[in-house]
Design a protein around this nucleic acid. Structure first.
Lengths: 338, 338
DNA sequence: TCTTGGCACTCAATGGTCACGAGTGCCAGA
DNA sequence: TCTGGCACTCGTGACCATTGAGTGCCAAGA
């Protein structure tokens, strides 16, 4: 087990390295932190920390930098979540309050988060599967063509074209609209398939084909949109990554363009639990030198989606975690109000 | 006026420089192109081209690279639009055909364009002001709360919350919905304000407040959404910019995150006319070493929005222009079908 | 047993010198 | 007007010495 002082040395190394972006040596450490011991003692501690794999040397005659394992210990044991200043909180609130619709909320959130953390921000749209139905609308565009519009309690709207096997009467459509809504409004999306299962049977035989077609499009929409929509922003912050970043930045940008990777990135964060993935803890190879801080947000007590930031492993964890948490809370509030 | 051969030399320089990314000298030129003259002659031509400002030397003992003015001449006079191969055309078609809704069309387009040109792609959503109304839906969410949903002929959907001054009866809402739709469906968005102007007067005095509120939200939506939505992709391609790009890539990424800048970028491209903005021809300072190739696309004969790519001034103009034009055409077709 | 000062050692970074060679401009001759 | 020849420029890369931050280890002290 590591002694108290060695943990203190690790904390100092992480803080200095995050600040200066340069390997930190024993002498500099004792000068910048009141450790109460001499550089030689710190060197011994450093050697021990290196043996345990918490820090490493880029080359023999250089200072030490934290390893992924070192950051992990720092985040788990040594660092808290730094609360935002009052000014920052007010800025968040006023920035988000101006939003006019869901797209706007998400757009503003991503910009806000990127600006606040000076890193890349990722925000997921409220998930369909965890939302409830607010309304289903059916519009006849042509005799055998129907537009299906799906509205969620979080304000998200999805639409689909439906080509029907036969012309649809306005009465039939109105009938279907009414019955469909009476069954599904207020229900969770996951319940919808069960709730509409027997609906075609209650229609005239002539209309059953059409009804089935519309319903199956509806169900398809639910499935497809389970692959959630994401918005990212602040990619310009990637340029602050490091000096050598031609090789670093490329795979990160590539990873950020793949929905699948991004979704995995946000991972199993929940409303209450913030996740921090550090360096190699990310499955994706291109993200081996980045860390991800993510948390769920929701309109009620429950998370409907996630948001987070992606930055270099060498990031200000307490500050970033504070910003992510605060933004998630405010977005949750905004959604609950709408 | 420049002689025929000097233009030929310029063309060769542009082609070689685009290929190799290195300044090209007189000797290499005569070896790689059948100019029929000696290096010494080419040197004279180069000196002339440099006097005219079409090419420049990074330093005394280096080859020449084209200037913005040189690329301009190349694009205007020396290069055509390179048509895509059959395989490429088929790939475009099959890739876009799988799209399920407008979001998907736009998303696929941006990925396709980025992949095809290996540059950053920008696609604008079909503009509201140039579209026509397909349907307006009003939903009562609470006694005094209405959701307004606006659907365009290009499949775009916008929604807004409306807080009414007084509770709204379902009858009133149905009435308003019907009258509103009968007036505006099939009309251009720019016409809508005129068409609904006198609508409140035809309602009972009690309901006029509500009707006015709903209508003013509708009009607001039209105005707000005139600032169009854009999607970008392929930012990872920025890493192929050059060797020195820490300084180059930063302002580009920043510029790409600003809607306003992007919209200006797509500029006055129209359906028929493709625009090419080279280097300093872009107003935005961060984009001084990039070129933009943009063109309008539309469901009918008319452009409803624009798309394009952003890349280094040193780009393959004929190929890029070919890809941009082809993608715009296919997207237009897809939209016309939906 | 832990801490400390001293000391020799390592090695990246810095800067200077030098040879190389791609590329140029200019000129005289065809 | 084109061409071959030639002297000149200057960025590049190799080589080398210097410097200094940082280390590991050891012996002495608390």
């Amino acid at each position: 087990m590591l002694s108290e002082r060695r943990l203190e040395v690790l904390r100092a190394i992480v803080q200095d390295y995050v600040g200066t972006e340069e390997p930190v040596g024993s002498k500099a450490l004792t000068e910048r932190h009141r450790l109460g011991v001499s550089p030689a003692t710190v060197r011994n501690d450093m050697a021990a920390l290196e043996d345990e794999g918490f820090i490493a040397q880029p080359h023999t005659s250089a200072g030490r930098i934290p390893t992924d394992k070192g950051y992990r210990l720092f985040v788990d044991k040594l660092a808290g979540v730094k609360p935002l200043s009052g000014a920052e909180r007010r800025a968040i609130q006023s920035f988000l309050d101006g939003a006019v619709d869901l797209d706007d909320v998400v757009g503003r959130t991503v910009r806000l988060l990127a600006q606040l953390t000076r890193q890349v921000a990722v925000v997921q749209y409220p998930s369909l599967t965890r939302s409830t139905v607010r309304h289903v609308e059916l519009l006849a565009l042509a005799p055998a063509r129907v537009m299906l519009v799906l509205i969620t309690d979080t304000g998200r709207v999805e639409q689909r074209m439906v080509d029907c096997p036969a012309p649809v009467g306005e009465n039939t459509l109105a009938d279907l609209r009414a019955r469909l809504n009476s069954r599904v409004v207020g229900q969770r999306f996951t319940e919808v398939p069960r709730l509409v299962q027997d609906l075609p049977e209650s229609f005239e035989p002539d209309d059953r084909g059409t009804v089935s077609t519309v319903l199956s499009t509806l169900l398809e929409t639910l499935v497809e949109e389970t692959e959630e929509r994401l918005v990212i922003g602040g990619t310009a912050n990637l340029t602050r990554f490091g000096h050598d970043f031609p090789l670093t930045i490329r795979p990160v940008l590539e990873a950020l363009e793949e929905q699948v990777v991004l979704l995995k990135l946000l991972g199993e964060a929940t409303d209450s639990r913030m996740t921090v993935r550090i360096g190699h803890e990310n499955d994706h190879e291109g993200l081996n030198s980045t860390s991800v801080v993510a948390v769920g947000y929701g309109s009620g007590g429950e998370a409907v989606a996630k948001l987070g930031v992606v930055g270099p492993t060498r990031m200000d964890y307490p500050g970033t975690m504070g910003a992510v948490r605060a933004v998630a809370r405010y977005v949750g509030q905004i959604l609950a109000e709408s």
